[in-house]
């Protein structure tokens, strides 16, 4: 209810504030350098988000940093309320960070929000489709909002409706669609402008097995076509199957980051689900420097 606290409330040692006085259009700086390091499509540093309400201050994100490159699925794994949706909302410029920086394809989320939104497609449980619009109208509307030329838009629409086998729901109103159909339309809506970055926030939530498999396959195909994908979930099997790198979030902080193999080696726990559980149950202050299994770390 209360306004979000400004960056000055955040201790400097916790949340570094970026200097936004300089232009952040740094597409060239993310190009593969001489050493052959890949282009960073998403670059997040020291991201913080604080809310203030009747129950006091609430830190939704605390000093979160990560990078994602094209052709990679980056998983955000965490229990409910860990801060996954807040990170993704900041990336989509729906929320503003209290401190820290986030760049999408070189565009700062605070300085160039409209450019950022053109770079990505956002599919979330919170991004529903319109009940009183047909599937075709919905995707067409967003294509127009992205400023696609009529002929390009028509081509994209036909391609997407064919690819996702949605031609039979072209003229069905959103209110008459099943959850799986709605999610297909949502994905088509997010892809209509062919963005380089895709954000999936709990995209399989509430879907049946068939629809879940279709969504996951689509995400993999997108990764294979060179898209940069951020995939948030609390379902271990999905994350294990899909993600190239994982950040485990707990109470707004990244408690572990790496690919599945690295994490297993570092924490000496091959079972991702067990690793996740231990990190969440005991690891409120566990950092990546901890090299022994967490239950023995002595933290209550």
């Amino acid at each position: 209810m209360d306004p979000v606290a400004d960056g000055s409330d955040i201790p400097a040692e916790t949340c570094g504030v970026a200097d936004r006085s300089k232009p952040q259009l740094m597409t060239n700086s993310f190009s593969p350098d001489a050493a052959g390091r890949p282009l960073l499509m998403i670059h997040v540093r020291h991201l913080c988000k604080r809310y203030s309400d009747m129950n006091g201050d609430f830190v939704a994100l605390d000093n979160v940093s990560f990078d994602v490159i094209p052709g990679q699925i980056y998983g955000l794994l965490g229990p409910n309320g860990a801060g996954k949706t807040t990170i993704l909302r900041i990336l989509c410029t729906v929320l503003k960070p209290t401190a820290g920086t986030a760049l999408v394809n070189g565009f700062d989320v605070v300085e160039h929000p409209e450019q950022v939104r053109r770079q990505l497609g956002f599919v979330s449980t919170n991004t529903a489709i319109y009940d009183r619009m047909t599937g075709w109208e919905m995707v067409e509307y967003f294509g127009r909002l992205y400023g696609l030329a009529e002929d390009v838009l028509l081509g994209r629409l036909e391609m997407l409706f064919d690819r996702f086998k949605m031609n039979d729901i072209r003229n069905v109103l959103g209110s008459n669609m099943s959850t799986g159909m709605k999610q297909k339309v949502s994905i088509a809506r997010a892809l209509v402008h062919d963005p380089p970055v895709l954000v999936f926030d709990e995209a399989t939530s509430g879907l049946d097995v068939v629809a879940t498999r279709e969504v996951l396959t689509t995400v993999e195909q997108l990764r294979d076509s060179g898209k940069c994908v951020v995939f948030s979930s609390h379902i271990m099997s999905e994350v294990r199957r899909m993600c190239d790198r994982i950040a485990i979030l707990h109470r707004g902080r990244v408690v572990a980051e790496g690919n599945v193999g690295e994490l297993a080696d570092r924490f000496k726990q091959p079972d991702l689900e067990e690793l996740f559980y231990q990190l969440i149950a005991y690891g409120t202050i566990v950092t990546e420097t901890v090299a022994t299994p967490l239950p023995n770390s002595g933290t209550p």
Binding site: R89, C92, T93, V94, E114, R117, R118, F122, S124, N126, T127, A128, I129, F142, L145, Y146, G147, S186, R189
Partner: peptide, 8 residues
């Protein structure tokens, strides 16, 4: 939120 995440 769907609309706000569009470039409009």
């Amino acid at each position: 939120e769907t609309l706000l995440s569009s470039p409009a």
